[in-house]
Structure formats: structure tokens, C-alpha cells
């Protein structure tokens, strides 16, 4: 059993062929840890994209209001401005104070314009970093809620260092000395999502997606046409069950039949149950172990072919090599 398994208590599905793995801890929290459980409920990748983006899905502030108590929002990056596409603050989860940070989409076009469709600017990520530090300083667990099409790709973002802010946010999370649980609520769009996406446990709602680039972006690059997004989504394996198989997420939070948007209360209840269970577990792990396990969790991504270090075959003497050898062989005939 790997170190990761020991710490999360066998939350991850056992490796094929192994009998280790104890799903009961996950079952307690009602989580899906095995993608094969999902086969019957799976939709097409393109439908998954549509569901994950559904404007009536519960968004971060709603989840915070439903799953947490006494939320006090904190604003601003102390440098430039308050980015409305990232929200965060202090709240209580089942009576325990935590720091929560999430990307905020709107539930209407008007609200979406105000929230920039959940696409953060660099100052949003710098606000997030500030709140991560608050969690670390006061030994509060951190919960992040991922829901963004991606970081804002416009000129203001470039001017203020979009790439640097994302890299710094990821660095802050990889070394943050406090437990972190990530929940992907809807859309996990690329590096802009990963800036909130590095944690000890990564959970995802059943109908969420997570991808290296939006299907439209991929289509624009691969097929030179954004209308091929459906085809790109097919190839990208971005739906939650795929992510579970790839190990990008550790477990899925089941949604009500019909999707999270059909029953917000049930969805936030399921999120709360999952968070409480995971934070309980992580609270018992020494921080040094959390950090080394977190490092190994992300260190393990990427399957590569590495030829074994074989000693080279011993060199034949000159008369047994190439053309000389051929000559001898021919002469024998």
C-alpha cells in the first residue's frame, strides 16, 4: 500500500490485481471511488461539458452558503483590486473554522459579466495566495472550490502577469503547511483551475470536467475550427469518470439524478458530508507527512517509457563483424 493510500485511508481505488484498498471509508462519505461504478450513468463527453457549464448549477458562493456556516468574505489582493471572479474567506465547516477559496461564476448573464464568467485576473490569484497564507499561519484547513473556464486570457491579464500569478499560486499550494481539500464543482479549466487545484485530496462532482484546455480552444488549435469542440471533447477524456480513472481526482461526489442543478440542497449536503469526512481524516495526519504525500501525489503523474539499463552486447572481434563475417559465411557455402 502506498503512502498516499495509508494517509487517505484507502480512498483511492486499489491498483488492478491488488486486494489491499478498503473502500469502506469512502463509502462512509458516499463517494464514488471506482470509475466502473459509473458506467451505467455515463453520458457523452460533450453532454458532460454542457452539464458542467450549466448556468443554473450551484456555484461557489451558493455551496459555501449551503455547506459552511458563518461565512465571512475577505476581499482584495492588497496590491491592485478585488477580483470578483475569485471569492474567499473564513467559514465554519461543521463547527470547525476553515479558509475557503473558490472561483465564482454567475447564475445570470448580468451576474456573469460582473464575475467575468468566473475567469480570474492575476489579482484574483494573488488574493487566493493571500488567503492560502492565512490558512497556513493560523493552522486552519483550506478548502478550494474549482469552477472556471480558465484564467482570463485578455491583455489586462498579460500585463499584470497571469502566468506568474498562477505559477505562484500553485507553488504556494504545493508547500502550504495545512490540510487542503479541493472540490471541482463544474468546470476545471486548465492552469487557471490548477492554481486552486493542488491539494491533499481532490474531489469532483459527478458531472464536472477538468481539462488542459477548453474543448473549443483545443478544436481551434487541432482542427483550426472552434466548431469541432465536440470532437475535441471526445478525445480529451475530460469528464469526471475519466479523471477518476487517470487519478487526477481521488473520488467523485455523486449528484442528484438529473444533475446538481436539479437539487442544490442535496448537492451542497453531499459536498458537506464529503468535506467533513476528508478534513477529519487529514486533521489526524502530521503536517510533514501531508506535505511529502502531496508532493508524491503530483510527482506520480505521467507514465513514461524508460528502457532498462542493459549492458551493451559485447563487441565481436574484427573478423566476426559486418562484411568480413558475411564473407566468411558466404565462403562456407
Amino acid at each position: 500500500m502506498s503512502m498516499i493510500d495509508r494517509i487517505v485511508g484507502g480512498l483511492r481505488p486499489p491498483a488492478p490485481g491488488s486486494t489491499a484498498g478498503n473502500g469502506h471509508l469512502a463509502a462512509d462519505a458516499g463517494l464514488i471511488v471506482d470509475a466502473s461504478e459509473m458506467t451505467a450513468r455515463r453520458t457523452t463527453p460533450w453532454m458532460a461539458v454542457q452539464t458542467a457549464r450549466n448556468i443554473t448549477r450551484p456555484h461557489a458562493l451558493e455551496v459555501i452558503a449551503g455547506a459552511f456556516e458563518r461565512f465571512q468574505e475577505l476581499h482584495g489582493d492588497r496590491s491592485f483590486r478585488d477580483d470578483p471572479a475569485i471569492v474567499g474567506g473564513i467559514a465554519e465547516l461543521d463547527g470547525r473554522p476553515v479558509v475557503v477559496v473558490g472561483q465564482q461564476k454567475g447564475a445570470s448573464t448580468e451576474e456573469n459579466i460582473q464575475r467575468n464568467f468566473g475567469m480570474p485576473h492575476p489579482e484574483g490569484y494573488r488574493k487566493a495566495i493571500r488567503l492560502y497564507r492565512v490558512a497556513e499561519k493560523f493552522h486552519l484547513p483550506l478548502v478550494t472550490l474549482v469552477d472556471t473556464p480558465g484564467a482570463y486570457p485578455g491583455p489586462e491579464g498579460e500585463e499584470r502577469g497571469q502566468a506568474e500569478s498562477i505559477a505562484s499560486a500553485i507553488r504556494a499550494l504545493t508547500t502550504l503547511a495545512t490540510p487542503i481539500v479541493v472540490v471541482v464543482l463544474g468546470e476545471g479549466g486548465s492552469g487557471g483551475a490548477l492554481a486552486l487545484g493542488v491539494g491533499d485530496i481532490v474531489l469532483a462532482l459527478e458531472n464536472s470536467i477538468y481539462s488542459v484546455i477548453s474543448p473549443e480552444g483545443a478544436a481551434a488549435i487541432l482542427f483550426r475550427s472552434a466548431t469541432e469542440a465536440e470532437r475535441a471533447a471526445q478525445a480529451m477524456r475530460l469528464a469526471a469518470p475519466d479523471l477518476l480513472e487517470l487519478g487526477v481526482v481521488d473520488a467523485l461526489i455523486p449528484e442528484p439524478a438529473g444533475g446538481a442543478h436539479t437539487d442544490h440542497d442535496a448537492t451542497t449536503r453531499a459536498i458537506k458530508t464529503a468535506l467533513v469526512a476528508q478534513l477529519d481524516r487529514l486533521a489526524r495526519v502530521p503536517v510533514a507527512d501531508l506535505l511529502s504525500t502531496r508532493y508524491e501525489r503530483f510527482r506520480a503523474f505521467g507514465t513514461i517509457l524508460e528502457p532498462p539499463n542493459e549492458a551493451p552486447a559485447p563487441r565481436r572481434p574484427w573478423w566476426a563483424r559486418g562484411s568480413v563475417r558475411d564473407l566468411f559465411l558466404r565462403m562456407r557455402i
Partner: peptide
């Protein structure tokens, strides 16, 4: 990131940053 490796490529960002 290399699109053809999807989220696995994305995770290389966290992996390399962890080592850095």
C-alpha cells in the same frame, strides 16, 4: 502543456513546481 496528454500534461505543472 501538451494537449494530447490532457490533464496528465496539466498535472506536470504542479509536479515541476513541487520540485522547484
Amino acid at each position: 502543456a501538451r494537449m494530447q496528454e490532457g490533464t496528465i500534461a496539466l498535472m506536470q505543472m504542479a509536479k515541476t513546481i513541487g520540485a522547484i
